[in-house]
Design a protein around this nucleic acid. Structure first.
Lengths: 151, 151
DNA sequence: ATGCAAAGGTTGTATATACATCCACCAGCG
DNA sequence: CGCTGGTGGATGTATATACAACCTTTGCAT
């Protein structure tokens, strides 16, 4: 390719790349939640697992992976850390392959504390991204969930 | 807190958390770029460093960290991997503390190849998030950059 | 019944990321 | 001139994440 053509594309990459913008926003925003949750030794990534598990009562890694568009091995490893902290416990599943888990009593306790911290982080974030930002992110994440699930 | 109050908050966390939505979108979209770039053994996170370095000619980790809202140590480590691949090289700085770097010839070559892959990923992503998504993410990332820089 | 493909998980490996700590160097002040 | 605080990096540690390879267990089709 011609050098100026490349230079032009480089400019566009630096200014227009949706992926970069998203990763930047993600770093900033996830940092807000993580700092609020730090005293609980909990992270934003873990909190969503806690919340969804509470909601469903009992879940398997592969289910959460589909919901969150996350590799199942990633979910399993996050669950493992939380299991080590005593927040989650495996329960017997009807299928010998699957390893469903649920909240422990301690896990429920933590979730209660976390919900307070979450409210603070959420408020800060909403203030930062504005109401159009909130609306767009909601519809975007809804679309992404639909559009990419092969099931 | 009362159990139902918590339950209510849990629902909101699962459905309204801006951080979760952002992380979800980030996983999906970053995956699009990463898969396009994989044949080049390059990632989206590395590409932005390559592009900004090309644009500026010569940069220091701390500078990129400020631009990208990223910890300087993270930048340094990413740069280190790219240095190991022969894409970046350190240059002497006027200050004995700083370690500026620039593209190598190989780095420029890779950037040219990457710009083609990037166009494909960008097109796919734009199709996925829609034009309002693109517009909002641009303005959001601009705001985030402004609003949080103490300098 | 058998044998094979699909499903669910685990483990190995690599990258990305933040925070805390520490070290080297520099700049300005007494 | 010599501290002293601040800047820029490097390193240790922990989490999050994806992909590939592999192992069990199921479900099915012949």
């Amino acid at each position: 390719m011609a050098p100026d053509k490349i230079q032009q594309t480089v400019d566009r990459m630096a200014r227009e790349c949706v992926g970069n913008q998203l990763r930047l926003a993600n770093r900033v925003v996830t940092g807000i939640y993580d700092r609020e949750l730090r005293p609980l030794k909990l992270t934003a990534s873990q909190l969503v697992i806690l919340a969804l598990t509470a909601k469903q009562g009992q879940v398997r890694p592969v289910e959460l992976g589909k919901t969150l568009h996350m590799d199942a091995s990633t979910v399993s490893r996050n669950v493992e850390r939380m299991r080590a902290r005593g927040w989650l416990a495996q329960v017997p599943g009807d299928d010998e392959r699957s390893r469903p888990f649920q909240l422990t009593a301690v896990g429920k306790q933590i979730l209660g504390d976390a919900s307070v911290a979450w409210e603070r982080a959420q408020a800060k974030t909403v203030a930062l991204v504005g109401s159009e930002g909130v609306a767009l992110l909601r519809s975007m994440s809804k679309n992404l969930m639909k559009g990419l699930h092969p099931d």
